[in-house]
Design a protein around this nucleic acid. Structure first.
Length: 442
DNA sequence: ATGTTC
């Protein structure tokens, strides 16, 4: 069994494919699977796919892909609250063995990176400049001289989501976001120092290389955009004569003004997140330059796992224009690579596309991480501090949050099983494995 | 994920 197919029945508009090994499938909650099946009942949905890190989310499960045809839905809930949550991997020019005092760099990074819920930034922007960043992302940062041209290379969308439109964003989102560029956030967001543990198929990485991985998104800005447009979708339901299988999957019609405005606002949040990860990279660069003058910080790759984008795919032998909503799922183009972080204290991976029949069935998608095994509440209740500390091994972790048991590796699926599941399903294969050394959690 | 129950 390389994947599961749920045939069209009852109100479903298309079959649902779940790419998971038998072991992984057994761990997936019924609620997550039901959410995935539910997505196929939206009128105009052509393809629904689940990744092996599937777990319960808001409307669409995390690890879910929902593609709408030209007459289909635009659903802000199917992208989720952290628009352009994503991962980037940085090269440092150092070997892990060059690290002199782990404690010093950990503390310096912690000082340099504002982290935690509601934590503001050390940067100041006028509203006009902030809106230019929303409109043009990393391109604006380059133009303004904040970063070098290299900042856009190796970044998905070149760090500039073309359809972004700051005029479709509420003033509340602007006021929340303007003070949050260059901040890490909370929850599963992190900055981690990693060592390349093994390389099987990559000429860009070498065993022993010291890398930095960053996982964060669009903070309160994207959250406000999502909130605004989910509310609007609920309000415009009757105007367009729609019915929703669940309010969490409230949607706009493809050609509606409100739907197009959402895509503009979503794009602005995408650019916020690209800019946020770019500014964080500058902060990291300053710490490295101060402590290790011979180091450099260079972007290896950056991509999102929460976004909707228009893409062409062949479905049932026919080429179609689709709006592909991915939530906790990464686009992995044929011949391309992707980053798959594990939970803190466990390994992360660089994978390449298997370029198979199944990668096409999945609309060129891959997993975004280990995926939760337990809800946050369940984790805080059932994981002891002792077991959590033991699960971290010798990885040093500092965190802004006081209780991060809900982020314990014990609350997540085993990343190696997710990776092997991707291989079994013929979606992707690992080309490099990264071992965590130090971790700064939000 | 989130000015963590506007």
């Amino acid at each position: 069994m390389t994947f599961y197919k749920f045939p069209v029945e009852e109100n479903m508009n298309c079959p649902v494919y779940l790419f998971a090994s038998k072991e992984i499938y057994a761990e997936i909650e019924k609620t997550a699977l039901n959410q995935l099946l539910n997505a196929s009942t939206l009128p105009g949905v052509e393809v629904v796919v689940g990744m092996p890190d599937l777990h319960q989310g808001y409307g669409l499960p995390i690890g879910g892909v929902m593609a709408a045809a030209r007459n289909g839905p635009i659903s802000p809930g199917a992208v989720g609250f952290d628009i352009n949550c994503g991962v980037r991997l940085l090269k440092t020019g150092l070997k892990a063995s060059d690290l002199k005092d782990k404690n010093i760099i950990l503390r310096r990074l912690q000082q340099a990176i504002p982290a935690g819920v509601g934590e503001g930034s050390n940067l100041n922007f006028s509203e006009r400049e902030f809106k230019e960043i929303l409109a043009n992302g990393v391109s604006k940062l380059i133009e303004a001289g904040y970063v070098s041209r290299k900042a856009a290379a190796n970044c998905e969308d070149n760090g500039n989501f073309k359809e972004a439109d700051p005029d479709t964003v509420s003033s509340q989102a602007i006021s929340r976001g303007i003070e949050q560029l260059n901040t890490l956030g909370s929850g599963n967001h992190f900055v981690e120092l990693q060592e390349v543990a093994s390389v099987s198929d990559s000429d860009e990485l070498e065993e022993g290389d010291l890398m930095v991985m960053v996982h964060t998104g669009s903070r309160g800005f994207g959250h406000q955009v999502a909130t605004d447009y989910i509310d609007l979708a609920k309000k415009t339901r009757d105007k367009y004569g729609l019915s929703f299988p669940t309010n969490n999957l409230a949607f706009f019609p493809w050609d509606s003004k409100e739907g197009r405005n959402y895509l503009g606002a979503m794009g602005a949040a995408a650019n916020f997140a690209y800019a946020n990860r770019t500014f964080l990279t500058e902060s990291i660069k300053r710490v490295f330059t101060e402590l290790y003058p011979d180091s450099y910080i260079e972007l290896f790759y950056d991509h999102t796992h929460n976004i909707a984008r228009e893409e062409k795919h062949v479905v049932n032998g026919k080429e179609m224009d689709l709006l592909v909503h991915r939530k906790g799922a990464t686009r992995l183009a044929s011949g391309g690579k992707a980053l798959i972080p594990g939970s803190m204290g466990t390994g992360s991976y660089v994978v390449k596309s298997a370029d198979s029949e199944n990668t096409r069935l999945s609309l060129n998608s891959t997993a975004h991480g280990a995926g939760r095994k337990m809800s946050r509440t369940q984790a805080k209740k059932s994981i002891s501090r002792q077991d959590h500390m033991r699960s971290l091994g010798d990885v040093e972790v500092v965190s802004a949050g006081k209780n991060i048991l809900d982020e314990s590796p014990l609350a997540y699926k085993d990343i190696t099983e997710v990776i092997s599941s991707l291989q079994i399903s013929d979606l992707a294969y690992p080309v490099a494995q990264l071992k965590p050394l130090l971790c700064i959690k939000g």
